[in-house]
Simulated assay, not measured.
Amino acid sequence: MSDASRAAKMESGGVVKGETGREAVEVAEAIKALQTQLADLRKIVQAAKTSGNIAEPGRRQ
């Protein structure tokens, strides 16, 4: 079982009555996509920190 499907199953407490297998797969895929986006954002933040390009709170760059 993949981490995404395991996470989806833990969040929902297992398969809910009336939920199809396809819906569970779609939820797992959405979670995986969000995890990928989060990893990308973490890389961007880390790159900004190491380049010394840190925004000041309350100011837009």
Rank of each mutant, 00 (worst) to 15 (best):
A55M: 11
V16K: 13
R22V: 15
S51N: 03
E23S: 05
G58N: 12
I54L: 09
D40A: 04
D40T: 01
R42L: 03
G18M: 08
S2N: 14
D3W: 12
L34G: 02
I31V: 12
E11Q: 14
T20E: 05
K32M: 10
S2K: 11
G18F: 13
V16P: 07
K43S: 14
V25W: 10
E19C: 10
A8N: 04
A8P: 06
A7S: 01
V15E: 09
A28T: 03
L38M: 13
K17T: 07
A8C: 10
M10N: 08
L34C: 04
Q46A: 08
A8W: 15
G13L: 06
S12Y: 07
R59Q: 08
S51F: 01
I54T: 05
R59K: 12
D40C: 02
I44K: 10
S51T: 12
R59E: 05
V45Q: 13
M1A: 09
N53Q: 04
Q35K: 12
E11C: 15
A28Q: 02
E19D: 10
M1I: 02
S5C: 10
S5K: 13
A8R: 13
Q37C: 05
K49W: 02
L34D: 02
A33I: 05
Q35W: 06
Q46E: 05
A7W: 00
R42A: 03
K9E: 12
G14A: 00
A48H: 00
A55Q: 09
V45F: 08
G52Y: 03
S5N: 13
A48L: 09
L34R: 08
I31M: 03
K9I: 08
R22P: 02
A7T: 03
R22N: 08
E11F: 14
V16Y: 06
G13S: 04
I31Y: 01
M10D: 09
N53R: 14
K32C: 05
M10A: 04
A48C: 09
T36R: 15
A39Q: 07
G52W: 02
S2W: 05
A4Y: 13
R22T: 14
E19H: 09
L38N: 10
N53F: 08
E29H: 11
A7D: 05
S5R: 15
V25N: 11
E23P: 14
E29D: 11
V27T: 05
Q37H: 00
S5E: 12
A55V: 15
V15G: 06
A47D: 15
M10F: 07
T50A: 11
A33P: 08
A4M: 09
A48I: 00
S2L: 07
Q61S: 11
A33T: 04
S5D: 14
L38R: 14
V25H: 15
A30C: 00
A33D: 13
S2A: 09
M10C: 06
A47P: 15
E26K: 04
G14N: 07
L41G: 06
V27Q: 09
V15C: 04
S51G: 07
I31E: 00
G13D: 03
K49P: 04
E11D: 12
A28D: 01
G14F: 04
T50K: 15
V15D: 02
E19Y: 09
